[in-house]
């Protein structure tokens, strides 16, 4: 029985390896991979797990890779994925080929016409991209952003609904300080021609990991909604950027508030800084407790 439990088959090992890779904290998958590889001591199993896990991890962490021709950076997300390993950068109208396991761009080519949005959509997308670029530059020193069309990219003119998606990804990795962190924002903007409204839905995820002589992680997540009226591309762009700016500023303030509430309210429910008596515990005089208890017992008021 014990023997059977000891011997994992390849499939089980691969699943375990995948689990560790997928659950790596932001910016740390290569370190996890290194330890895992030496622990598994089985290149075949490791490679299979890595091939499956890295693409999923890269997309969910919205990692950002430098384009090989120095023309900028491309985000790896499920929203701009064309073929397996190919990611569109609409701003430069290029398609990057990505090596997921090495986390690098190996190639870049101009996007084909059918991979890009129609010129009608492109007006909205481009205007929004310019506004978001301005906002991201002012709010996130390390932020990379992009705007994709995720629905209706071939719409040729007024009369149909379509949907744009804003991604902002900011990551900071400083392994020498044992600290990594990431901010991820994904905003869906539905352009509803029929009701002349834009519906905006945001999902914000913030994570941080500090692991010098310990292991402490922050995970914060927030979803919000807003709406505005359908206008010309430039006006839509400004309105959407303002909505995002407003909600993200508000969310950041709520994060700061959560931190400042920690010492006196939240953390106190786990353990107080000082005892209810507000003095250190009387270890030198614990006899008093047994005396009190004996008296209580005598008097029949012991619980």
């Amino acid at each position: 029985m014990a023997e059977e439990e000891c011997e994992l088959n390849e499939k089980q090992k691969r699943e375990i390896a995948k689990w560790f890779l997928l659950n790596s904290p932001g910016g740390e998958i290569q370190y996890i991979a290194k330890d895992l590889r030496s622990l598994l001591n089985d290149e075949k199993v490791y490679n299979e797990a890595a091939l499956e896990a890295f693409p999923l991890y890269n997309k969910s962490h919205l990692i950002c890779l430098e384009l090989p021709n120095r023309s900028g950076e491309v985000l790896v997300t499920s929203y701009n994925e064309l073929e397996k390993n190919e990611y569109l950068d609409p701003r430069t109208a290029q398609v990057a080929t990505v090596d997921h396991v090495k986390q690098v761009c190996t190639d870049v080519r101009p996007a084909a016409d059918e991979e890009l949005s129609s010129s009608y959509i492109e007006e909205f997308r481009c205007a929004l991209d310019a506004e978001i670029l301005k906002y991201a530059a002012e709010a996130y020193p390390k932020g990379i952003c992009s705007v994709y069309c995720v629905n209706g990219k071939d719409v040729e003119g007024p009369g149909s609904n379509f949907e744009l998606l804003v991604v902002i990804s900011a990551a900071k990795n400083s392994p020498q300080n044992f600290c990594n962190g990431s901010w991820r924002s994904v905003w869906n903007v539905e352009f509803k021609e029929d009701v002349q409204m834009l519906e905006v839905r945001g999902k914000l995820q913030v994570g941080a990991h500090y692991f010098e002589e310990g292991n402490v992680q922050l995970d914060a997540e927030h979803e919000c909604k807003d709406a505005t009226i359908f206008q010309a591309p430039d006006d839509c762009a400004i309105a959407i950027a303002n909505i995002i700016r407003h909600h993200e500023a508000e969310y950041f303030e709520s994060l700061e508030a959560s931190y400042s509430n920690l010492p006196d309210t939240t953390f106190k429910d786990l353990r107080r800084k000082l005892p209810v008596t507000r003095t250190l515990f009387p270890w030198h005089n614990t006899l008093q407790f047994s005396l009190t208890r004996d008296i209580q017992r005598e008097l029949g008021i012991d619980k």
């Binding site: 002589e213 992680q217 922050l218 995970d219 914060a220 997540e221 969310y251 920690l262």
Partner: peptide, 11 residues
Amino acid sequence: SGTFSLSGSIR
């Protein structure tokens, strides 16, 4: 403000 979670261990 959504969910805000801190967790960890030290020795």
